[in-house]
Nucleic acid binder design. Structure first.
Length: 712
DNA sequence: AGCCCGTCGGTTTTT
DNA sequence: CCGACGGGCT
């Protein structure tokens, strides 16, 4: 094992955090202040001190983040013991614990995890059954109800208090909502269904009610580290408190200025309550920024300075120089998209990798226009955030079939798959479910059900398929293949408009399932770590290909890029129209803007369209976001002014690189991004046409391209 | 009575 | 681009 010179590798504050191993520790870390680095080195330190890695627990916001940190810690120690640290999200940890201890509170080992959509479906079903919907009766949408129920649980608030505080217009519906909530809880219990919140709720409950479990868990995990603590909620804080009982070796890291998940019950004040939860906690602040240039930080500081409540100080860096962030106003969305595509192509020719550039936005649909432009120009991209693969109807169909194999009393899934049968609607499905519900073997019972002749054939085929899938000893992949034989013909009937597109997703799913030995694991991972829906590269499985990143700001948390574009900075989009009414929500939008701009290392572009198409209203004038309007003028430059200052000849030239002697046709050259290629010729003094081996033929402007001559 | 299918409206953020 | 809704069909 390598000895590590921590003092040389870390600044004094980071060093102190890394070497404080025992007792409660709160680290307030500004954006780009080496928060991840600190966590990684602390993990290495613990292992180096002889702590068995399996006694360390690392809780992060996504499982990807945890895996990445463990990989880095192992690299530092040049050994792989760190991989044995248990890392994951609160939800994945709770899931793991419930599979182990769930029986204590009446959970089967094969409970099903519902995603948000499933929860909404169940709520909808119950709402109809209770007669709370339809016919002139005004009742909140299932999305709203699900949000209310989720907030109640995560904030550990009563329904009445929550409605009063956040949904005063629904005060009249409290009784019905309460009744619906009781039924929802009952329904989940009956069918062994757990929504995301239940994972946390049940785990907390076990910890609270069973001191023996608490003891053995505290013994199992001697050291707990929590990342992104500003986005945890009260429920999660309690889980931490219980799990650390006895040893109190808990380190949490966060930045109250980056709290962006209050819609999920997170409260940035949580981070300040940590010292109350763990009296005697040591507090360390990391304030020096290692990521961005000072002009970018100046803009970020100015944006967050207007926040009503904040606790961290100004970010500063020792880095010198840097360009002012650029503001661009396009005539419309199409011009905004063209501008971004133009800049991206220039950056690529400067040698900035596509994957080191990101376009960030408030809501997933804000990038639709840009996606069209990128496709037109053949710029490959991946999109993070927004629609997940598992949220598409056809994938949910598949998942529902698989869930029944694991948990045959999951009547929510039964409902879904029965509705796929021709001739079966909501009524028939409910009757069937009432029949299947209390039979010991629901799948077999399907065939014996006294059904109308019109649907008997369909039920029989479903029963035979499920029986074949349920056979012992099959791999998940084999089960899926059996299912496809049954499902593919359905697909073209049910989704006749666009089934070829959906068929491709099914292939994608098949390629994912191949990695799993256990169906339970596969379903759990799909729910807890859902793969993104769109991989827009031309060849779907070509993940090596370098891609531009399009991402919601929420999904960009913790990441950084050379250049960042923040787009659609228009009132109503960002800040979102939903937030305009409430002060707290607006504050969160502001923090979201802060998170967005602090993702950039070298260059930052803030763009917005002057007009926008709004369905119903047609073309409307867009008003620049208040986040732009409020910025002091000296902190950014306007693109149109930059252009006006340049001579017409230079207008599109960004940087100068000395041009060498003219390239000759037939010469071999190497480009930092496109790789090697052969020169076709020069179109004029400045432009060379190169036929690249993999990237195809490109015309490059010599003033800003880095071409290397290769020996013949 | 219950199902199918075309139309239309309206779109936050995520484990 | 998905879900609610209403009219027509079995």
């Amino acid at each position: 094992m390598k000895r590590i010179d921590y003092q040389a590798l870390l600044n004094p504050a980071q060093y102190e955090a890394v070497t404080t191993l025992y007792g409660p520790l709160l680290v307030i870390a500004g954006a780009g202040s080496g928060k991840t680095r600190t966590l990684v080195y602390r993990m290495a330190r613990l292992v180096e001190e002889g702590i068995p890695p399996e006694k360390i627990l690392l809780l992060t916001f996504t499982r990807k983040a945890a895996t990445e940190m463990l990989r880095r810690a192992s690299a530092i120690l040049s050994e792989d013991r760190c991989e044995r640290v248990l890392g994951g999200t609160f939800h994945s940890l709770s899931h793991l614990m419930l599979r182990e201890y769930g029986e204590l509170v009446g959970l089967s080992r094969h409970f099903t995890i519902m995603d948000r959509g499933d929860a909404e479906d169940a709520i909808n079903l119950l709402r109809n059954a209770l007669g709370l919907a339809g016919k002139g009766r005004r009742f909140p949408k299932k999305e709203t109800i699900a949000a209310i129920f989720s907030k109640m649980v995560n904030k550990m608030m009563g329904l009445e208090d929550l409605i009063e505080a956040e949904y005063p217009h629904l005060l009249g519906d409290i009784e019905d909502l309460a009744r619906l909530f009781r039924h929802y809880v009952q329904y989940k219990l009956e069918h062994q269904l757990l929504d995301y919140d239940d994972l946390l709720v049940y785990w907390r409950r076990i910890l609270a009610e069973f001191p023996r479990v608490r003891e053995s868990v505290a013994e199992r995990f001697n050291f707990i580290m929590v990342d992104e603590y500003q986005d945890t909620n009260h429920l999660q804080a309690e889980i931490v408190r219980f799990m650390a009982e006895g040893h109190e070796n808990v380190m949490v890291v966060g930045d109250d200025s980056q709290s962006i998940y209050s819609f999920r019950g997170a409260n940035f004040r949580n981070i300040l309550e940590f010292p109350r939860l763990f009296p005697g906690a040591k507090i360390i602040k990391l304030e020096e920024n290692y990521r961005s240039t000072q002009p970018i930080l100046d803009l970020a500081n100015a944006a967050i300075a207007r926040a009503k409540e904040k606790y961290t100080k100004c970010l500063h860096t020792k880095r010198k120089g840097g360009e002012l962030p650029v503001v661009f106003r396009g005539r419309d969305e199409a011009e905004q998209s063209r501008f971004i595509a133009d800049r991206i192509l220039e950056l690529r020719e400067e040698g900035v990798e596509l994957s080191d550039i990101a376009v960030l936005f408030r809501s997933s649909y804000h990038s639709f226009d840009l996606e069209l432009e990128l496709t037109k120009r053949d710029i490959p991209f991946v999109k993070q955030g927004g629609m997940k693969l598992i949220e598409t109807a056809h994938i949910k169909d598949i998942i529902a079939h698989l869930r029944i194999i694991v948990n045959p009393i999951d009547m929510l899934s039964w409902n879904r798959i029965l509705l796929l049968i021709e001739g079966v609607g909501p009524k028939t499905s409910q009757q069937l479910i009432n029949y299947l519900r209390y039979t010991p073997e629901p799948i077999k019972a399907l065939e014996t059900y006294p059904a109308k002749p019109a649907i008997r054939e369909g039920l029989g085929r479903l029963a035979r398929t499920l029986l074949a899938m349920a056979k012992e000893g099959l791999s998940p992949e084999e089960r899926l293949e059996i299912l496809f034989e049954y499902y593919l013909p359905l697909l073209s009937r049910v989704y006749h408009d666009d089934y070829p597109k959906r068929e491709k997703d099914l292939d994608h799913l098949l390629s994912i399932v191949g990695r799993y030995q256990d169906l339970d694991d596969f379903l759990t991972d799909l729910a807890l770590e859902p793969p993104e829906a769109s991989v827009a590269s031309v060849e779907p499985y070509d993940t090596d290909r370098e891609c531009l990143v399009l991402s919601t700001i929420h999904s960009a948390k913790g990441l950084e890029w050379h250049t960042v574009f923040v787009i659609s900075l228009v009132e109503g989009r960002f800040p979102s129209g939903y937030s305009l009414g409430r002060e707290d929500d607006l504050e969160e939008e502001r923090r979201l803007f802060y998170v967005a701009v602090t993702r950039a290392r070298e260059r930052l572009y803030l763009t917005y369209p002057g007009t926008m198409y709004i369905p119903g209203q047609g073309r409307t004038i867009a008003k620049a976001s208040r986040f732009l309007a409020e910025l002091p003028a000296r902190l950014s430059r306007n693109w149109h002014e930059i252009q006006a200052e340049l001579s017409p000849d230079e207008a599109s030239v960004v940087i100068n690189i000395e041009t060498g002697p003219a390239f000759q046709p037939g010469e071999w050259v190497k480009h930092p991004v496109f790789g090697t290629g052969q020169v076709r010729g020069m179109t004029d003094q400045h432009k060379v046409v190169v036929n690249f081996e993999t990237a195809g033929t490109k015309t490059l402007h010599l003033k800003y391209v880095k071409l290397e001559r290769l020996a013949p």
